[in-house]
Design a binder for these strands. Sequence first.
DNA 1: TAGTGGTCTAGACCACGCC
DNA 2: GCGTGGTCTAGACCACTAG
Lengths: 224, 224
Amino acid sequence: MATPIYRKIKEMILQEIEDKPANSPIDSEREMAVRFDASRMTVRNAINELVEEGFLYRDKNKGTFVADRKFVKKTPVSALLQEDISEFNVLYFNVKKADEAGPEIAERLEISPDEMTLIVLRLNTLNTKPISVEEIFFIRSSISESELNNLRQLLDLNAYLKDGRIIQRFIPMLVPVQFANLLKIKMNTPIIRVETVITSKSGKPLVYIKAYNNPFEKIIEITE
Amino acid sequence: MATPIYRKIKEMILQEIEDKPANSPIDSEREMAVRFDASRMTVRNAINELVEEGFLYRDKNKGTFVADRKFVKKTPVSALLQEDISEFNVLYFNVKKADEAGPEIAERLEISPDEMTLIVLRLNTLNTKPISVEEIFFIRSSISESELNNLRQLLDLNAYLKDGRIIQRFIPMLVPVQFANLLKIKMNTPIIRVETVITSKSGKPLVYIKAYNNPFEKIIEITE
DNA sequence: TAGTGGTCTAGACCACGCC
DNA sequence: GCGTGGTCTAGACCACTAG
């Protein structure tokens, strides 16, 4: 089974609804089962995922419909990582003991305060506008030498999400003085710091991120 | 079909994992199919929902395992509406034209600025501690006379979520002076205002909520 | 090799909405 | 009465892991 049938059907449905207006009906599950020469349960599996992801919605006894684009699932993480960053610059990186990196780091990564961490500070921009500054904390021992030499790849945080889980906290504060200039905003501007822990499926922390977001360039928005 | 078999199985699995530690394996799908006298697909349906909700996770070719409690899905809405509010007091309510209620109200509710809206201001508390102040905007014409006389029921926003969709925006700001006292926090405290639009499945706005959250009593946290 | 989750089939009955 | 999504069955093969 190279790519499962239901994935192919999912892609085909996605193409078909691409140009359709919101709330227009799609073919019934039985029709598609015939059309795609698959069983109804297979078609259903494809539709289930599209509903889950916010592309379609069902109305019992009526049919399945194209959802409004604005409801395609969006979380701060995905928004932060995927869409609106066109570029980033690493401003600083270093290896330090967890307790020297910050008071809460060891706790968040569930390691001893003596354990070494890799700290990266990066500035994310979109069309030269500063979107956010991120402090990213890795556990040194879980990073190979080759990964260390390929920061670019290491910082592709999307990779961690595939088989991971996430907890995010939203902290209101005034922009820290050292970041005001970087974000090109005035001192004492209220901002939101998003603190993210990404873990493996079993709950072991992999990365901890503190993101300081420029409220004038990036509105944090979630859809579910 | 009173309550579907897979729902019952779901409940039984939930009970069984209640006392199990995180990452301990549950019975295989085939075992449960025999034990619950159902087909494997029915058991799978039950497990699918529990995985989706964050109670279990799967490892291909290995089995299905109990997830860490901290990963049970949590969104600001659900946190706001369900868990941590023990009580609320309606401080004010009135019926006004949308444009008199606020400059962005008509836009968010997708109505004409002349249309009448019901505005409710409420203070949410937990153990007498102020958690948040909410400004809630309804469309007057979509509320019946009897609903108007039962504010308590109208304000059970959870009811809207069952068949609805949500968009939330997070706005950093200093606490508005008129709310500082209510929230028992100092003036000029940075807070997060969560702006929520709840719509029907088709995308028609039903309610618009502006929540001013006390950062000392309520940390906004999401898990997915 | 035995067991797991992932995928798939070809049927079936139900409750409900709409005409 | 017809069509819809929701539920359910009793099988099947696959790729992969672990002993």
